[in-house]
Nucleic acid binder design. Structure first.
Lengths: 123, 123
DNA sequence: CTCACTGTAATATTATACTATTACAGTGTG
DNA sequence: CACACTGTAATAGTATAATATTACAGTGAG
């Protein structure tokens, strides 16, 4: 299985699937031209409905992340890496702004960055 | 007005209100014992329904962030600052983990931290 | 062609967020 | 007490996410 769905999150499942796939591409575990699992099989793996996965895939096509080949499946499109990373950098900036507002020091933030990046586990 | 609601966000409005209030407390713009705007007036300011604000306040009481005085209003409770900051540090760690997975370098992350913290605007 | 897979489409149902509205109860001030 | 605020509660309606289910169309292997 590729990623997990948080069924208690306020973030819609189809959004979680979209982000999960973008991260798989960015991490290199999915490469250009590679086939994604079929709508039905991914839905079964994740424990969600077929329609939910279909929506995620459909929207990723609209965003240029995937291409669809009827009767065959979905493949990773030719995406610029920087474009995909953009949504992550935006998310990071938003959280950082909140941290600053909340009075969390820059030093503390950098300490946390070190924990996450330094910490043993690779990807 | 205190903060803005993103009506297009997938994050529920009552969640946005809860986070907004927590940030106001952390930034010192709301202090212990201070009264919050009444449910009706905040609802009008934000352009949302009375029930939505009521839910946010109610849940903040359950979390110990606010106290309610019937007929008078809601006041900021005696909260430990670290407890309130916790939710922000968790959010930060989650985004950072994704950044790491996505292959965004630690240097680039620290550069972004610098942009957000260094950049003129204080709070 | 047939079969087993692919995506696509449509319908109905449930759960939840949000809204709108009305009503009632507690508190303090005149 | 009357009034103007507070919070609280209950109801109904709308929009959307997600489910369940059925059906149909494209593709490739046998």
């Amino acid at each position: 299985m590729w990623f997990r769905i948080d069924f208690h999150s306020s973030k819609p499942i189809y959004e979680q699937i979209k982000e999960g796939i973008k991260l798989l591409i960015l991490s290199g575990r999915l490469r250009e031209g590679e086939f994604l699992p079929s709508i039905r099989s991914l839905a079964e793996d994740l424990g969600v409905n077929l329609n939910t996965v279909a929506r995620a895939y459909r929207e990723l096509v609209m965003e240029g992340v995937l291409e669809v080949r009827r009767g065959e499946g979905y493949v990773v499109a030719d995406v610029r890496r920087e474009a995909l990373q953009g949504f992550l950098e935006d998310a990071l900036k938003n959280v950082l702004r909140d941290c600053k507002t909340a009075g969390i020091s820059e030093e503390r933030v950098i300490e946390i960055v070190g924990e996450v990046y330094g910490g043993e586990g690779g990807c």
